[in-house]
Amino acid sequence: MTHTAGLSIETISMRFDLPNGTSVQALKDVTLNIKEGEIMSVLGPSGCGKTTLLNIIAGFLAPTEGQIVMNGHKVLGPDAERGMVFQQGALFEWMSVRDNVSFGPRMAGKRERDWAENVDHLLDVVGLRDFKEKSVYELSGGMQQRVALARCLANDPDVILMDEPLGALDALTREKMQSLVLKLWKETGKTIILITHSVEEALLLGERLLVMAPRPGRIHKEYRLPFADLGVDQDLREVKKHADFGVKREEILGMIWDMEEEIMGRAEAAS
């Protein structure tokens, strides 16, 4: 197999052995290739292994089988080439906004004059220039997530992994953040993998959309969608009016409903 730029997930399986002797098959034979610059969203009922998959890609977890290969080398642990944006609470409260955003370059030992301009630019892009000396705990949830995005971008990773980054935001802020993510994707050309609970968000932010199924966690279905490209220069509300958008939404919602129902059914049968 030849490895070019991009990320390949090669027959990953993940089994958690629990202290009580049983084990959970969180992922089973997940294989996936992600091209450089792609934006992919991942959907699935909770517990289907989305976070586990992302943590394996990030290098926080070692899979029980299979491997992740990035730009031709095997992933062995976390690295600055794979940035992560968490749902909440991953900012450093003891630092100002600017210190948070410049964390990566500073840890790499770069001098301030080498990163200051880029950090200011990113703070501009996420609309937080006036808040750069503020403490992060003084910011709203939406602003905090913008800091987290800027912090990730300031480190210039090749891949950005996001685990429900907008999950804790209110609907209006969330919509603005979705536009921002698309804008940043187009501007920076980063590879983005984004986990979400919202079908609409997955449709809007995924060139590719992966639906995962639980027990064991696996890829259930994959879509290629035009909406992310459309959303780059269109209002997201216009994008949602597309006939195809509604059709896809109903189809995927139905699919996830069925999975959830099956989980419930199994739970009932078990009890």
Partner: peptide, 8 residues
């Protein structure tokens, strides 16, 4: 985790 993936 965030600090690790920022290269710390």
């Amino acid at each position: 985790h965030a600090a690790y993936s920022l290269g710390a």
